[in-house]
Design a protein around this nucleic acid. Structure first.
Length: 246
DNA sequence: GCTAGGATTTACT
DNA sequence: GTAAATCCTAGCA
């Protein structure tokens, strides 16, 4: 059985100090640990993305860890594919995937190169760039909904497949994407539980971490196998048996 | 080649 | 609370 790791005290980072540590960037070594260890440590960190419209900064409030080819909830459970290749890549990079035909979700790659390990970014609080996010997330009724949920978060940051494998730890101050130290929450404010939407053997693994009481944390939903609308003998509509239209 | 299902969100009842 | 939207991936015949 897997135990939820305690929020780790990474040697290169400490609680933000008044001298500006919160604005400094996380080192790549931060991500050189396994995803279940990195995940709770990412809470309170700030993901900054420069776009043509300006900079959006997001404080992470909810994450999920996916680790190893044996993780039944992971995209890597069936080994390396073109889709998940960046998940096997070097740490500190982004793994962006397309899902449900319309949404993008983003992970931060962890562990040494060659290990399938990542932390799904599920929720965050927009710190700067509200106007930019408001345009992208026009359907959000409140600010807390800008990045509550993995697809909303990706949308708020303007992430898509062009950002797959992007380096979050690229040297230089002009790097388009980076993760800042931010202000990690107190350890007793970090909650954990089973991962959202993961069923089967992976459903019991408490690798979802979130900041207790934060309004930008998405509600937990247990895994529910979707049933595809099918012709069911008397197909009312739809191409019976045919391949999907392109 | 075909089919089932998906780390989701949103609109509608 | 429920169902639809929509495209990709991977298993299977």
């Amino acid at each position: 059985m897997t135990h939820p790791p305690r929020p780790a005290e990474h040697p290169t980072e400490a609680v933000a100090d008044p001298t500006g540590t919160a604005r400094s960037r996380l080192d790549r070594s931060f991500f050189l640990r396994d995803a279940p260890e990195v995940a709770p440590d990412l809470l309170g960190r700030v993901l900054a993305v420069d776009t043509g419209e300006g900079t959006v900064e997001l404080r992470l409030t909810e994450v999920e860890a996916y680790f190893g080819a044996n993780d039944p909830g992971s995209h890597a459970r069936n080994g390396r594919t073109a889709r998940n290749a960046s998940m096997f890549g070097p740490p500190g990079h982004l793994y962006v995937y397309f899902t449900y035909g319309m949404h993008y979700c983003a992970n931060v790659v962890c562990s040494p190169d060659g290990t399938a390990s990542g932390v799904l970014l599920r929720g965050g609080e927009v710190l700067t760039g509200h106007e930019i996010v408001a345009r992208r997330r026009a359907t959000a009724r409140r600010g807390v909904e800008y990045a509550r949920g993995p697809a909303r978060l990706a949308s708020a940051l303007g992430l898509d497949l062009t950002h797959d494998a992007a380096d979050l730890c690229a040297p230089g101050d002009d790097a388009p994407m980076r993760i800042l130290h931010g202000t990690p929450p107190a350890p007793d404010l970090i909650g954990c539980g089973p991962r959202t939407g993961v069923g089967g053997a992976g459903a019991d693994t408490p690798w979802r971490f979130y900041i207790e009481g934060d309004p930008t944390v998405s509600p937990y939903r247990a895994h529910v196998p979707r049933r595809r609308a099918r012709p069911a003998g008397d197909a009312p509509n739809g191409p019976a048996g045919g391949a999907r239209p392109r």
